[in-house]
Design a protein around this nucleic acid. Structure first.
Length: 821
RNA sequence: GCCCGGAUGGCGGAAUGGCAGACGCGGAGGACUCAAAAUCCUUUGCUCGAGAGGGCGUGUGGGUUCGAGUCCCACUCUGGGCACCA
């Protein structure tokens, strides 16, 4: 494609100018209104892929647009540079993860620069920077001292093929390892946790006020999974002084309890098991804790449809509602980690209990009248039956009465439970931030003194596949004197989950200059919360939840006093790019590198494509047609260049009616593009600019020509409106046309003149029975009576009425009149 | 199974309850050219018709309304999230 200008020359000229002049550097004492625009902290995966391009195109548009709106825009960049892929690559090549990571950081940085995205590079932050690690560890210690970080035994995901522990997100839905495909096993190890559950209630409540996509908010709510219920005791039939504590959200169904179930891990299981049942129970427990654990819980099938394996313990408990004895089972469908690890089972109203009762021949009693066509359990509302003092009541009222009953007689306690678990933050990996704790036999867990931070892993570590942290076998690293008693002690060998790094980087950006603290709360408060956060939907739960937790905790620990408790005011989640139906990603190897477009359509052309291809939130299918659409976007830029350079343009002196309508179109476009950019409708904003270009060029190329001032104003306005989308060519053309003025990017965003938005005439549609019969040019101020009378007088309407009188006339001046025959 | 989205020309997509298909891609025709590319112009939902013009049309079936792509009900298909959380 021959283009009317040199893409590479112009783009590299402006890119180096923005970089050298620090055009988008912004100081913390800037007097303008502030705006914090942020794209999610990227993992340095090498050169950018189209997903990055899309992300940074949107982010850069926001930065440049808000700058033209007169704001001081904070636009930082950095890297989430710790992580397993670099470690695996290093093991394979016998190299060091830092070498891989830093090479890839350079690649991605250069990709981003070639896209023309602008940042305040003085604020550059990356996770494996010792300066950053120091404060990451300092925060960990603060969490530890406040009891927010603790150690406990926990089951972790172990991949036998990779001989390493995996993060939850690396385990696929079917319980296999995303890399090797092996079935992931469960191992019990002592691990570090953050007490995120302390914040469950606040994390849930604060979701409501966030300006986030509704589906992301829903996903967060579901993940936290709040449920209200009652915890109470089921007395053992053999010894009424002993009891089994259970949790239920449906106390109203208590008359339907026909058995109870404890989890295989339940501490009381051994005592509940009678000698005759011991073999059956042991078999079940062995099965539940076996290597195929993940196969048991993870399934593509509905949970209730899974096999309901279980065994009778030999013991009985008393149903407090009926006084009857019911058997206690052990079953793996009850989780040891939720509620009390034991349940009352009500097969009549619970799907899972029903399946279990069917499989084990246990009685099923309905306690709510179900519609006639319901087979199996019924969880809907209805009057209670077979329920003594609850008979006739509906769920809400019955729940309340039943709760009071349990409170009075069975140690009942109303309780709220969450699905959310504490955050397991330790990783047996090398390429992460070391946990700054020393294990001392006499002093216990001792934080590394702050003057010894950061704890940095030594380079001469052997990274093998033993499965324990490579740091664990490095004596130089591990052996250390206890900071308290100075006796021989050992350093923690685990590193932190990389999600901890991305949980506060946006705070460090606000003040990366502080040497004596992670960030100055006063400086951070000037910028926080982030006004516009932009990223992929894949982070809808984990990253966003963790970062929200971090900020709340940092405020409460007085590390970030005065900062908004929610870090991200507005979130936009872009759609993903798909190739042949699969998400485009490095790991799938189905990338279309943006580099190939820079010499041809340029960054501007590629950016306009990403804006124009469809709604920013929607997924993009990369197809055969895509290349042609990208070229179409470059063609749009070329047509603008030719028009701006006066190619084939005719002028006339006096300004005429056509010129006025062109100027009106210019102002209408200002109004449309502005509202479109504000509501993230970038595809229609580009369409509006294409339309304006069509109007300008049509008039300028007509034999009568156009008034020069009108055309110049039209082109200048287009350059301003297009500047955030195609920053290079607009800067170049602006400089050519107005060499004495400052850059297009330093201009104010244009404002539509309201007088120019008023049209002299509008087309009024006249319908008969909803079918369009006539179009009339009328004044926009036309009255209802006037509109009605000229509509009825229109020949097409008279004809359509065939002499009948109109039954009814609906007039919506000035746009429409509908005559009902 | 539960919870969210989505379904509009050949394709990507536009449309505060008021002219369906803006804008672009692709197609067709033309201008320029020895020719091609590039560029520019015209045209392009389907269908009947020589034409004027008519009929049909936003996944399906109902409903509300003078009027529905848009609102309501019931489905179908499709994408995603969660998934034995009591």
């Amino acid at each position: 494609m021959a283009r009317p200008f040199s893409v590479t020359e112009i783009e590299s000229k402006w890119q180096s100018r923005w970089l050298e002049e620090g055009t988008y550097n912004v100081d913390n004492d800037d007097a303008r209104e502030r705006f914090y625009a942020l794209c999610m902290y990227p993992y340095p995966s090498g050169s950018a892929h189209q997903g990055h391009v899309r992300n940074y195109t949107f982010g850069d548009l926001v930065v440049r647009y808000q700058t033209m709106q007169g704001k001081a825009v904070l636009t930082p960049f950095g890297f989430d540079s710790f992580g397993l892929p670099a470690e695996n690559a290093a093991i394979k090549a016998g190299s060091h993860p830092r070498i891989f990571t830093e090479a890839r950081m350079e690649e991605l940085k250069s990709s981003v620069l070639k896209l023309g995205a602008v940042y305040d590079w003085r604020r550059f932050v990356y996770s494996h920077d010792p300066e950053y690690m120091k404060w990451a560890q300092w925060i960990f210690i603060k969490f530890f001292e406040a009891g927010l970080a603790y150690r406990a035994m926990a089951p972790v995901n172990w991949c036998p093929g990779c001989a390493t522990v995996l993060a939850n997100e690396q385990v696929l839905g079917d319980g296999t390892c995303e890399r090797s495909g092996d079935v992931v096993e469960r191992k019990n190890l002592e691990q570090w946790f953050f007490r995120i559950t302390d914040y469950a209630e606040e994390l849930l409540n604060d979701v409501d006020a966030l300006e986030w996509p509704e589906r992301v908010k829903t996903m967060q709510r579901n993940w936290i999974g709040r449920s209200e219920g009652v915890e109470f005791d089921l007395a053992l039939a053999s010894d009424m002084s002993q009891s089994l504590r259970v949790f239920t959200t449906r106390p109203d169904t208590g008359f339907g309890i026909t058995y109870a179930v404890v989890a295989p891990e339940h501490p009381l299981l051994e005592r509940l098991t009678t000698p005759e049942q011991k073999t059956a129970v042991d078999t079940l427990v062995a099965y539940a804790s076996s290597a195929s654990e993940m196969e048991r819980t993870a399934s593509s099938d509905a949970g209730a449809g899974l096999d309901k394996r279980g065994a009778f313990t030999g013991s009985y408990v008393i149903n407090p509602f009926t006084g009857e004895q019911v058997p206690v089972y052990v079953a793996d469908y009850v989780l040891g980690t939720y509620g009390t690890g034991a349940i009352m089972a009500v097969p009549g109203e619970d799907e899972r209990d029903y399946a279990f009762a069917q499989a084990h021949g246990l009685p099923i009693i309905r306690t709510i009248e179900a519609p006639a066509d319901v087979e199996g359990s019924y969880s809907g509302d209805g009057p209670h039956i077979n329920s003594g003092f609850l008979d006739g009541l509906f769920i809400a009222e019955a729940k309340e009465k039943a709760a009071v009953f349990l409170e009075e007689g069975s140690n009942g306690l109303r309780k709220v439970n969450y699905r959310l678990r504490d955050w397991l933050v330790s990783r047996q990996r090398f390429w992460g931030c070391p946990i700054p704790i020393i294990h001392c036999e006499s002093c216990g867990l001792v934080p590394v003194p702050s003057d010894q931070l950061p704890v940095v892993a030594p380079d001469d570590v052997v990274m093998d596949k033993s499965g324990q942290s490579p740091l664990a076998t490095h004596d130089g690293f591990r052996n250390v004197a206890c900071p308290k008693c100075e006796r021989a002690a050992r350093r923690e060998a685990d590193t932190m989950d990389t999600f901890t790094d991305s949980s506060w980087y946006f705070l460090r950006y606000t003040d990366p200059f502080s040497k004596d603290k992670p960030f100055d709360p006063v400086e951070a408060a000037k910028w926080m919360p982030v006004d516009q956060y932009i990223g992929g939907i894949e982070h809808a739960i984990l990253h966003l939840l963790y970062a929200r937790f971090y900020v709340k905790a940092l405020v409460d620990l007085n590390i970030a006093p005065g900062i908004e408790r929610e870090p991200f005011k507005r979130l936009f989640t872009q759609g993903m790019i798909r190739l042949d139906g699969a998400k485009m990603s490095k790991s799938k190897g189905n990338l279309i590198a943006p580099e190939k477009y820079y010499p041809t359509v340029g960054a501007d052309g590629l950016r306009v494509f990403h804006l124009f291809v469809g709604p920013p939130a929607d997924d993009v299918d990369w197809t055969d047609q895509t290349e042609e659409v990208i070229e179409g976007c470059a063609r749009f830029i070329d047509r603008l260049v030719r028009l701006a350079e006066g190619f084939d343009v005719n002028f006339h002196e006096e300004s005429n009616a056509e010129d006025l309508s062109v100027t009106q179109a210019v102002h209408r476009t200002i109004a449309r593009v502005t509202t479109d950019l504000d509501r993230w409708s970038y595809n229609t904003a580009v369409a509006a600019l294409m339309e304006l270009l069509n109007t300008l060029s049509k008039n300028a190329r007509s034999p009568e020509g156009i008034n020069k001032g009108v055309l110049d104003n039209g082109i200048d306005t287009m350059l301003l409106l297009l500047a955030p989308m195609a920053p290079h060519i607009t800067a170049e053309l602006w400089e050519q046309r107005r060499p004495a003025e400052s850059s297009v990017h330093q201009q104010s965003w244009p404002i539509a003149d309201p007088a120019m938005l008023v049209e002299e005439t509008v087309t009024m549609v006249v319908q008969v029975n909803g079918k369009v019969k006539a179009r009339l040019e009328v004044a926009p101020t036309i009255s209802e009576a006037e509109a009605t009378s000229i509509a009825l007088a229109a020949p097409e309407v008279v004809e359509a009425l065939e002499g009948h009188a109109a039954q009814r006339v609906v007039a919506r001046p000035p746009r429409l009149v509908n005559v009902v025959k």
